[in-house]
Design a protein around this nucleic acid. Structure first.
Length: 1043
RNA sequence: GGGCGAUUAGCUCAGUCGGUUAGAGCGCCGCUCUGAUAAGGCGGAGGUCCCUGGUUCGAGUCCAGGAUCGCCCA
């Protein structure tokens, strides 16, 4: 029985991955790993929840790969890990998804559908997509405790957030604000600061210049500019900049007033009658654009002062509607202006707006424009295309609305958060500053949403207006006076039936209707999932409420939290700085005073292969499902790992093919090994993975590979320790290149023609060692291919081998196997060989034509010695009979003086340029150990001597070597060349005939005068040995036949 | 308007402490090796290292200013 299974010429990544997944499942590989590491030193990774609202995209694959790489690395080092995956379950994402699913298009329709059914549909959607995401993640090779994923919709998660909110209230941070907020009329909710980002679109709107006739003046009016006609009915004031200069302009319709600097760009034309300071306008009153509406009665519209009036757009006079804009509202508060709220939750005008009643903002716009036009109130109307915010979920244009929202004030927590963030190690490092900037600028956290499927805010108000903040589910049940019978879970509508006793008076208190920002859900995770203040752990205890039936996650106890908090490492995409990293930090610093994570790795965006964002409608999107079944998980993971995470990743099939080709080199080396190990019945010894392959039969090249392998192990460890996967990839690819294009190439005959059994064994043992250590090094990145190779190379061949590479531990360098001298020597040899090949190429002498001699010259004693130790390698590689070493290359090269600039620069300063010029021209003189150049003397140690080829030789130079070939081809050499051509030709014939490597053949050759016949008669044994010919007979043509 | 980052070959990007002729991969052209390799190797074409100024014996690298792009915040 051969120890190794034969392998196909190319790996079928997809097929072997499916087989590997089945094996892991069958053999419980992951469970074995966990069991083995349980109780060891922890590596705490906390997973940021992925929204369970869509299937996984290739951009998710990046993050999940990074997470998996470092979890696998930690596990191979023996660390205990949590392996808890998380799903984000609540909030607008899911609600909008369900609305689409059910064909609902407004809050009214949701309420008509029934909140109970709606919540169930939301939960079911989460359950559905979390199952899909789990399956996709498994396919990618991610190892997690999938059964015990956390879900932010569970009662314990909600209960923990309540505790946080209660604490915020106790500290006096919690307040209800009456503010102008960006509002989505379709979703019927306001959006908070972090939801506004990245959601601007270029939109075309009316651009109106509106007349505001001044009271008590004859045909004199202000001109204001607006792009939101629907806000005009709510106009209460016009703002001017007090220090700015305004002009009075005679127009056919009367005297117009605009800012002097804005006259030119405005549509106002006419003779300038005079100027007036803004401050002089303040206090004037005017007729509002819609003065007749009921809402406009009972106050005067007046001109107010505002330093922030823009002189970059508009007329320098700003229409102010405090109920329709953030800045307007602030100004209105200061000036005591009436904040009119013209539209309801759905963006429809209220009854006090007369003929506009019931119309939504978008359709009212044209009605308003028409009406103003008819009444002669428009100076001009046109259109403008500008950046305007839209709802990030549904794309609806946002409006500003005055609403009551709940906020957490952050003045007190800001500095502690900044301090805590400074303790965090950010990769890439510049994001430390980004987080700090965000924290410095953060406004109070708006935590309420006027929606349904979300964290129910535990704020209870009694009739006297006392507020009770309930801090946990247990507290709720304790305080409840009725309504708990139907409380299936802590969600609307069931929670809304619960009435509690007010904490201050004895009255009934009811919950405010609002739900919470989803970032509360995610931010609490380091507390809720780790059992922060649980007295005892409860198996599957986390799965309470909406989590029943979707997870069996445990509810651990406080000791567990102590062990795993804070996280050693978290990794998410860059946007999470202002989202999850922020909310986690906020809650962590509030509850515990520390950052919940020590180290962060962020990554950027995934684009298509040409660098454009992937977009469904552009047709350039690649679906995860397609990618993984076409490229394979390892190939995708390799792409992700190769990419520096601080730069966008250009993802595509072309890139994947590049990766496949690189991995093919590894596979080829592996296949080569397996082929010959089978033929030669090589049996590996697993103990050598620690000790290194034994000394018997070892050649210098073997020791070199072993030494290089130590370097690989060190480099890979260093790369992973610094969260630098591209560095690992570079090291691995260099190693594979060394193996394939240097070691195997030069050692081929030791595998093929076994004259020396010990040498053959050593070659096998060395290659096996180098391959196995290499796949252990990359196992975290490429878990499938690595384990596949492990099965064949180790598990099937060694007694007592670990059943999986992932159980084999991360390799450690073995002291004593390093050999810097040898590595340097082979480096020199490699240079010489490359130079020799170049010389051959330049002289048009192909490698198959043997030559008599190569002369290697160097003035460098160390290099000469290094090369001298390996003349056999050089001879073989360059196809020459002899390698001659020369001290000086004078016969075919000239000496060159290379100045050492670091030393000479400071010494000679400006003269150095002159010295270098002279040296380049060869105007120098060697005098003993020194060099005379012009008026200067270079002392020993200040320069190096090198050789440069003279004209007319087949010579190349570089790295301090000159390599010259003896180009004379004697008849004997020529015949040998013919032999090698023939061998090559016969090998091709064997291949074409489909013969196995070990098949023997019968050869006939053309029996005529000439080189070919002479080659066969004079080198019969050589040819026979190389081509495995059992007979070599003269005949008519060159033919082979299986023996 | 402020902050962070980037700008190097046709494309994607490396480039260490400032040092001698600035590299890799892909693509293109030519050559070549090979019973592991649809691979690999060698050579060639292809460069205003964004611009300007400064520091220095010496700048892709450091400093200042500017331009353009990306991201974040106003």
């Amino acid at each position: 029985m051969p120890p190794f299974e034969p392998v196909p010429p190319k790996p079928d990544h997809v097929a072997l991955e499916h087989a590997t997944l089945e094996r892991w499942e069958r053999e419980r590989t992951f469970e074995t790993l966990r069991d083995r590491n349980r109780g060891n030193e922890p590596f705490s990774f906390i997973d940021g929840p992925i929204t369970a609202n869509n299937p996984m995209g290739v951009h998710h694959g990046w993050g999940r790969t990074l997470k998996d790489i470092w979890q696998r690395y930690a596990a191979m080092r023996g660390c205990d890990l949590l392996y808890q995956n998380g799903f984000d379950c609540q909030g607008l994402w899911v609600e909008v998804g369900v609305e689409k699913e059910l064909g609902l298009n407004s809050k009214r329709e949701i309420e008509a559908y029934g909140l109970g059914r709606f919540s169930r549909a939301c939960r079911d959607r989460v359950a559905h997509f979390s199952r899909g995401l789990t399956a996709q993640s498994k396919r990618l090779g991610q190892w997690m405790d999938w059964e015990r994923s956390y879900y932010t919709m569970t009662d314990p998660n909600i209960s923990y957030i309540w505790g946080f909110l209660k604490l915020c209230n106790e500290r006096g941070w919690l307040y209800k604000g009456h503010r102008s907020m960006p509002w989505c009329p379709r979703c019927g909710t306001s959006l908070s600061q972090h939801e506004l980002i990245d959601s601007y679109k270029d939109l075309t709107h009316p651009s109106l210049h509106v007349r505001l006739p001044l009271a008590g003046r004859d045909r004199e009016y202000l001109v204001v500019w607006t792009t939101t006609p629907w806000t005009l009915p709510a106009n209460v004031a016009a703002a001017v900049r007090p220090d700015a200069e305004y002009v009075r302009v005679q127009t056919p319709a009367g005297v117009a007033i605009v800012a002097a600097s804005r006259l030119e760009p405005s549509p106002v034309r006419g003779e300038v009658l005079g100027t007036v300071r803004g401050s002089e306008l303040v206090g004037l009153t005017y007729t509002a654009p819609f003065d007749d509406l009921p809402a406009q009665q009972g106050f005067e519209n007046r001109v107010v002062a505002w330093d922030d009036v823009s002189m970059d757009e508009g007329t320098g006079i700003v229409h102010i509607a405090p109920g329709c804009g953030e800045e307007d509202f602030e100004l209105g508060k200061r000036e005591g202006l009436e904040p009119l709220t013209p539209v309801d939750e759905a963006g429809a005008f209220f009854g006090e707006y007369g003929w506009l009643h019931g119309h939504v903002t978008a359709e009212a716009a044209q009605m308003i424009v028409d009406d103003l036009g008819q009444r002669g109130r428009l100076v001009a109307d046109g259109e403008i295309t500008h950046r305007y915010p839209v709802c990030w979920r549904c794309g609806t244009e946002l409006i500003y609305r005055l609403v009551d929202e709940w906020f957490i004030g952050c003045d007190e927590i800001r500095d502690p958060m900044i301090q805590a963030a400074r303790e965090v190690e950010w990769t890439p490092p510049q994001y430390a500053k980004r987080m700090e900037d965000w924290l410095r600028n953060m406004g109070d956290w708006c935590i309420s949403r006027k929606r349904y499927w979300g964290l129910p805010l535990p704020f209870y108000l009694c009739e006297d207006g006392h507020m009770t903040v309930v801090g946990s589910k247990a507290e709720l049940l304790e305080r409840a006076v009725r309504g708990t019978e139907g409380l299936e879970e802590l969600h609307r509508p069931w929670i809304d039936d619960v009435v509690i006793g007010c904490a201050q008076c004895a009255g009934d208190a009811r919950r405010v209707a609002d739900v919470g920002d989803a970032w509360l859900d995610a931010g609490i995770v380091p507390f809720s999932t780790l059992g922060w203040h649980n007295e005892a752990s409860v198996e599957a205890g986390y799965a309470e409420g909406a989590g029943v039936g979707v997870t069996v996650a445990d509810l651990p106890d406080h000791a567990h939290w102590e062990k795993w908090y804070p996280a050693d490492w978290v990794s998410e995409m860059r946007e999470q700085i202002r989202l999850w990293f922020y909310s986690m930090l906020f809650m962590g610093v509030t509850l515990d005073g520390r950052s919940p994570y020590r180290r962060v790795l962020t990554y950027e965006k995934v684009n298509d292969e040409t660098g454009r964002p992937m977009h469904k409608s552009w047709g350039n999107a690649i679906w995860f499902e397609d990618a993984i079944e076409e490229m394979g998980a390892d190939v995708m993971r390799w792409m992700y790992a190769t990419q520096p995470p601080a730069q966008n990743l250009n993802f595509g099939y072309g890139r994947a093919n590049e990766v496949k080709r690189r991995l093919l080199t590894l596979w080829n080396t592996y296949a080569f090994f397996v082929t010959y190990a089978g033929i030669n019945d090589f049996r590996p010894d697993a103990a050598t993975l620690v000790s290194g392959p034994g000394p018997e039969g070892m050649q210098p090249l073997d020791r070199w590979v072993v030494a290089r392998t130590q370097g690989l192990v060190r480099e890979c460890r260093a790369a992973l320790d610094t969260y630098d996967s591209p560095r690992l990839v570079r090291a691995f690819e260099a190693h594979v290149d060394d193996l394939s294009n240097w070691y195997v190439r030069l050692s081929r005959s030791r595998f093929w023609k076994s004259e020396d059994a010990a040498s053959t064994r050593a070659a096998h043992a060395t290659l096996w060692y180098a391959l196995v250590q290499a796949i252990r090094c990359v196992a975290p990145v490429m878990p499938f291919l690595a384990d596949e190779m492990w099965q064949n190379l180790v598990r099937g061949a060694c007694a007592d081998a670990e059943p999986s590479v992932h159980l084999a531990g991360y390799p450690e360098p073995t002291d004593g196997l390093d050999d810097e001298g040898l590595v340097a020597s082979l480096e020199s040899v490699r240079s010489v060989v490359e130079l020799g090949r170049r010389a051959r190429s330049e002289a048009n002498l192909k490698l198959r034509q043997p030559l008599a001699e190569v002369i290697v010259a160097t003035d460098h004693a160390d290099r000469r010695r290094q090369v001298g130790e390996h003349v056999d390698l050089i001879g073989a590689e360059l196809g020459v009979k002899a390698v001659r070493l020369a001290t000086s290359a004078e016969e075919f090269a000239q000496t060159e003086v290379v100045p050492l600039l670091k030393l000479l620069g400071p010494k000679h300063g400006r003269d150095l340029a002159m010295i270098r010029g002279l040296l380049r021209e060869g105007q120098f003189e060697l005098r003993g150990d020194a060099v005379l150049v012009g008026d200067w003397t270079l002392e020993p140690g200040e320069f190096e001597l090198r050789s440069r080829a003279r004209e007319g030789f087949a010579v190349t130079d570089g790295d301090g070597f000159v390599v010259a070939l003896d180009t004379e081809i004697t008849p004997e050499l020529r015949l040998e060349g013919v032999v090698r051509d023939l061998i090559r030709q016969i090998q091709d014939m064997r291949k074409d005939a489909g013969l196995a490597i070990t098949d023997r053949i019968r050869l006939t050759y053309p029996d005529r005068d000439g080189d070919v016949t002479r080659a066969f008669t004079e080198h019969r044994d050589w040819i026979a040995a190389e081509t495995l010919a059992v007979s070599v007979e003269p005949g008519a043509e060159l033919t082979i036949a299986k023996a």
